[in-house]
Design a protein around this nucleic acid. Structure first.
Lengths: 343, 343
DNA sequence: TCGATTTCTGAAATCGATTACATTTTATAA
DNA sequence: TTATAAAATGTAATCGATTTCAGAAATCGA
């Protein structure tokens, strides 16, 4: 039993396919009220629903957004995808989802082609910028003709980007520790081939410099975002510089690792050692002590990206152009016990 | 500049569209080697890629799976989607993703129709079974003609289902507490209109009954999966029955809330009170004390579902039928400090 | 060398919509 | 009552592939 088609409806309503199509298109496209009703009735009786596929083929639009994502097992990316879906849904788009396992994708072309061969109206590239994995962005020849927006990547003049201000996040986190009276503030960064990690590190650096606090070489340890790397990171920091009294861990997982290690080596948090993370993962306040952190609204980031992309798509359909733009979201300091005020 | 089409390739190669199509279809479809090469060459030069949309229209296949999901902000569902995508990708499918905000969706038809109008080859319904939100399953008239598999729902004779054995999970968690010497074991359940929550509760109940431990009415508190509800849950349990020395919280978030509350009211965990959660969320071992829990491999669940669905699709294409089946995955006990052995 | 196969290729129909263009019907003005 | 413009509908081409059917070319056995 195959789907009912527009031809079936036309037959039942006693009109041509064109008329059915016009009725369904809405708009006051020169349709007599009486005819409209006959068609509607037939549509209802047959439970007709147009084939989106056929429609896409003809119109070269699909009301679909292609999403290329990474790291869905983690909190941030999940929220981003969720936000993307929410906004897309509200705007009438469906998502074509592709997740990549290796952030250093080299089959970019293949991916873009696949989505375009499905006539997606736009693409959201939600893969963190790591090493040179976004280099293709600078090769104009490789730009797809479909609108595309990049998430969590370094803003580029000619591209649409939506990102959180990681630099400012690092700045704020570190300033908070400073305000709490920390004198020797260590840093556990994410992998430094991540753009976001570097930004947070810059923030930390500038915060220290601006108030003239010490910043020795060994104050920085590079983690890999995992909790265990946070543990190791803290161990290293403390072994090199026992005077360290504050640590900015560049994500909550590493912060939590540091928390555990601090407990293990008998440093009281926050009395001896203030710790702040980054992300504000779910239930961050239930770690012990409750984790201070930088909240970034990844759901909103996803929504923003889709909203922007929607504008670009619409503009394009009207033959207009949107000027490329970077939408930047500010993170927010969340103070909890792990960094709270010593005198 | 529009895409290059099969007609372009045909022209350049000096053959008919049919021939191009045959070459691209692979198989040894009666193509002379010389012709094949001419076509391949043209394909290469033009950078031709067939339109998946046109292809779907004609063939009524799309190499796409529709996914209806829920709760992507949470760990379990995220992993499930990730697993689905992994396996789908390996099997050559792309995903059409739709997330629902209200698990009591009433626009089931609309959703199914939308996916079918895109000729998805199969559908994965990954929405938890809550209240009567799966009642439509029992109405044969509403079954879509496309293969569909349900995740985390109660197995039904005529449907494909993939789920974790929550009953056994509850049983194992509780037995573990018993083995640790707990005599009065309370339960913080998830919302009892969730099928999964009820299953875990049954497991708890049967575990207690099978060894003749007490199971008073007030040993059960209903939470809502959130950490704060775990806090409240524990408060209630202890106020009613101070003798409680073990608690099975039906997810990690509530367990973590209980952990915090226990600390707050001065009950030592695990010495005075053993606590076990459910899910094994990321970094569960970094709570304090490290959280014992039931691990369920949601990634694998997603993969399993896709694998099964793939079989069903293939069978259908060959005119065969797969017998409906429930794929059940076993959870695994993960013992950490929060429930460890007192003598 | 010729007819019978087998291999190879092309023409045209098809999938299910949209839309440009043509045509008919209705309304309006002269 | 016409001529004419506007409204309503239909015809047929189109989107970009696949596939049936039929015809052409190559192969083969006698």
């Amino acid at each position: 039993m195959s789907r009912t088609t527009i031809a079936d409806v036309a037959r039942v309503a006693g009109v041509s396919k064109a008329t059915v199509s016009r009725v369904l298109a809405g708009q006051s496209n020169y349709i007599r009220e009486e005819t409209r009703q006959r068609v509607q009735k037939a549509v209802g009786e047959l439970g007709y629903r147009p084939s989106d596929t056929a429609r896409s083929l003809k119109s070269k639009r699909s009301c679909t957004l292609g999403v290329v994502g990474y790291g869905l097992e983690f909190y941030g990316p999940s929220c981003t995808i969720s936000g993307i879906e929410q906004e897309a849904s509200e705007l009438g788009y469906t998502l074509l989802l592709h997740l990549i396992r290796q952030p250093e994708t080299n089959n970019v072309e293949e991916l873009l082609e696949r989505m375009q061969s499905r006539y997606v109206d736009g693409i959201i590239w939600a893969v963190p910028e790591i090493g040179g994995n976004h280099a293709w962005l600078d090769d104009k020849k490789r730009w797809p003709s479909v609108p595309i927006i990049f998430l969590s990547t370094e803003p580029r003049p000619d591209r649409f980007v939506a990102a959180v201000d990681n630099y400012n996040g690092g700045l704020m986190a570190t300033r908070h520790l400073i305000a709490q009276g920390c004198q020797h503030i260590g840093l556990i960064t994410g992998p430094l081939d991540w753009w976001e990690a570097r930004q947070r590190k810059f923030g930390w650096k500038d915060a220290l410099e601006s108030v003239g606090l010490p910043r020795k070489e060994g104050y920085v340890v590079e983690g890999n975002w995992s909790a265990i790397s946070g543990e190791h990171g803290l161990t290293q920091l403390l072994s090199r510089y026992p005077e360290i009294d504050g640590v900015f861990a560049c994500n909550d997982r590493m912060a939590v690792g540091a928390l555990k290690m601090a407990r293990q080596v008998g440093r009281r948090v926050p009395e001896d050692l203030a710790i702040i993370g980054y992300d504000d993962v779910q239930d961050a306040e239930y770690f012990f002590p409750a984790l201070s952190t930088m909240r970034q609204d990844m759901v909103e980031l996803g929504r923003l990206a889709v909203r922007k992309l929607g504008q670009v798509i619409e503009a394009k359909q009207n033959g207009a152009t949107c000027p490329p733009e970077a939408v930047i979201l500010q993170p927010e300091l969340v103070v909890r016990a792990s960094s709270l005020l010593r005198k």
